[in-house]
């Protein structure tokens, strides 16, 4: 199976093409945030390096979130439209799982995280068990303090992963005084499109038309509206109508 993987869920951009478990080409950049400008040209370049046409691809794999809303919009729209228009499969993978899966096997808890501003993070907790990465804490949007409190209760050593981890080192020092923790080295801090292809290879394809990013957070307007309208629905088919 030939796979095209796209991750624009945060500042780094990674695009890879693989055939089954073999990498054909990959580009990962961290120089610009403007994925709208760089994503399509990068896809073209990576396909060219892999000596493939877009129509040769059997499955498009995309980092579905959590992450920056703008980044997710561009990556998910591009991935779902590509898969739809060449009539191939689409798979979405957790952006946090991509980081955790690239980390070597260890007894420690792996905690990939992304800054969600105002001392909040998108994070999940994983642990390697019998060659497989198990989810200990589902990916969620929570305050950094809350995350630390959950981690403080665990016996295992903790490894934070991701370029945003360093931003919170002061808070870690305060909240995790008695714990053994570390921040993963830079080489594990960036998402790899190849890891994404390998995760996406094992998953079941989704229904393309319904596919949306995993934001893990409602917009402020929706949250407020739901508070004022307890009967209201988070999502309702009538919200968008074809005319």
């Amino acid at each position: 199976m030939k796979l095209l993987a796209i991750d624009t869920s945060n500042q780094p951009l990674s695009v890879a093409v693989a055939e089954d478990n073999k990498l054909l080409a990959e580009v990962t950049t961290c120089v610009t945030k403007n994925h709208s400008v760089t994503l399509m040209p990068t896809i073209k370049e990576v396909l060219k390096a892999a000596q493939l046409e877009i129509k040769d691809i059997d499955r498009v794999v995309v980092a579905q979130g959590p992450g920056s809303y703008t980044g997710l919009r561009i990556g998910v729209t591009t991935a779902k439209t590509l898969a739809f228009t060449i009539q191939k499969e689409l798979v979405g993978v957790s952006s946090l799982a991509i980081l955790a899966n690239a980390y070597p096997q260890t007894d420690a808890l792996l905690v990939p995280l992304f800054d969600a501003r105002r001392e909040n993070v998108f994070a999940a907790v994983y642990k390697w068990q019998k060659d497989e990465l198990q989810v200990i804490l589902e990916e969620q949007h929570l305050s950094i303090q809350e995350l630390c409190q959950k981690l403080a209760k665990r016996r295992e050593r903790i490894i934070f992963i991701g370029i945003d981890s360093n931003k919170f080192s002061k808070i870690f020092q305060v909240e995790l005084t008695m714990k053994k923790y570390s921040i993963a080295p830079e080489q594990f801090a960036y998402p790899s499109g190849f890891v994404l292809t390998q995760l996406g290879r094992q998953m079941k394809p989704v229904q393309i038309s319904d596919f949306v990013p995993r934001y893990l957070r409602l917009t402020q307007a929706e949250t407020q509206w739901l508070q004022n309208n307890p009967e209201g629905k988070k999502y309702d088919e009538s919200y968008v109508k074809k005319i």
Partner: peptide
Amino acid sequence: GALLVGVAAAKAVAFAH
């Protein structure tokens, strides 16, 4: 944000075909 969705989709279709 709204414009980006149309632009990304249009580019994907244009490129693929």
